[in-house]
Design a protein around this nucleic acid. Sequence first.
DNA 1: GAACAATAGTTGTTTCAACAATCATTGTCA
DNA 2: TGACAATGATTGTTGAAACAACTATTGTTC
Lengths: 168, 168
Amino acid sequence: MTAAPRVTPERLDAWRAFVRAHAAVVGALESELEAERDLPLPWYDVLVSLSDAGGRLRMQDLADRVLFSRSGLTRLVDRMAAAGLVTRERCEDDRRGTFAVLTRAGADRLREAAGVHLRGIHDHFTRHLSDADVRAVTDALDRVLHAETGAGLEPGGERRHRGYPAVQ
Amino acid sequence: MTAAPRVTPERLDAWRAFVRAHAAVVGALESELEAERDLPLPWYDVLVSLSDAGGRLRMQDLADRVLFSRSGLTRLVDRMAAAGLVTRERCEDDRRGTFAVLTRAGADRLREAAGVHLRGIHDHFTRHLSDADVRAVTDALDRVLHAETGAGLEPGGERRHRGYPAVQ
DNA sequence: GAACAATAGTTGTTTCAACAATCATTGTCA
DNA sequence: TGACAATGATTGTTGAAACAACTATTGTTC
C-alpha cells in the first residue's frame, strides 16, 4: 500500500512553504530580469557559469554547471550565439570538443543583469531572513542537497549543479 | 549603478542552498513519479487540486490553485481528458464557464501516485531535517512567501498559489 | 592495426508552454 | 433594449524542451 512514512503535518507544511516560496521568488526574479534587462533566467545562468569559469567552457562542463538539461544546451547556446553573447570555438587538442566562449557583449550583458538579480535576491528573499534564519536555512538545505547529490566526500568529486545564480 | 544592497556572502549562500536543493529534490520527485507511476508532476498537481476541491473546479479556479500558467491549462486539461483522468462539463448557470471534473480513473491515478510522492518528500527532503529545522524553515519561508504574495491580511483574500503538492 | 566501444556534440522530430487573438456569454448603463 | 465593456475559456501560432538518432573523434583490445 506504499505507506507514507512519518511525514507529519508540520513536516508537510515545511515542504509546502519550500516549494511555494521557491515558485514565488524565482518567478519574481525571472519577471524582473526579463522586464528590466530583457534577459531570460536560463541565459543569465549560462552567462554566470561561463564568467565564473573565466569566460570559456567546453559544452560538457557548461552542462555540469547549469541547472538545465544537457540536451537543451546546444540549442540554448545556439540562440545566445545568434544574439552575440557567446561564440563557439573548436577544441584543438580534442577535436570532438567545442568551447562556448563568453563574448565582450555577453560579459557586458551579464554585468548589467547581475545588479538586478542580486537586488532581487535581497528584495524577495534574504530581506525577510534574520541572521539566525540564514544559518538555519543554509544548514538544513545544504544537508538536503548533499544527501541528494551525494556530494562532498569523494575527493576530487564535484558532482552536479555548481553555482546556480552565483553572482560575480 | 544598481548597487547590490546588503547581500552578504552568508546570505548568498542561503540563496544558493535554497535553489540548488529545490532543483535537486523536485527533480528527484519528478523522476520517481514518472518512473514508478508514469505521471508528470504537472498532471499530479492538477489531480491534487481537483481532489482537494471535491472533484470539480471551474478552469479559472483550477488555474488559481495550480502553479502553472492559465494559458497552458486548457491544453493540459485537454491531454488529461484524452487520457481519461478528467472530463469537461459545461456550467449551466453561467454558460461561459466550464468545469474540469475528476473522473474515477483520475482519482485512482492520484491515489496510486500520492504514496510515491509522499514517500519522496520524506526520502529526499524531510528526512534530513530535525524538528528544529522544520520549524525554522517553515517560519522563514512562510515569511518570504507571504511577503511575496501579499497574502494573509486582506480579509477574504486568498491570493495566488494555494496548495502545490498538497497531498490528500 | 583493425574493429569496436565510448565520448562529444549536433540535428530531427515530437511534445509542450507562452502569448495573442478569438468566440461566446454576461453585466451595465444610457 | 441595444450598445459596449468585461469575463471565461478555447484556439492558432510561435518558441523552446525532451528524446532519440546521427556524425565525428578518441580510446581500447585482441
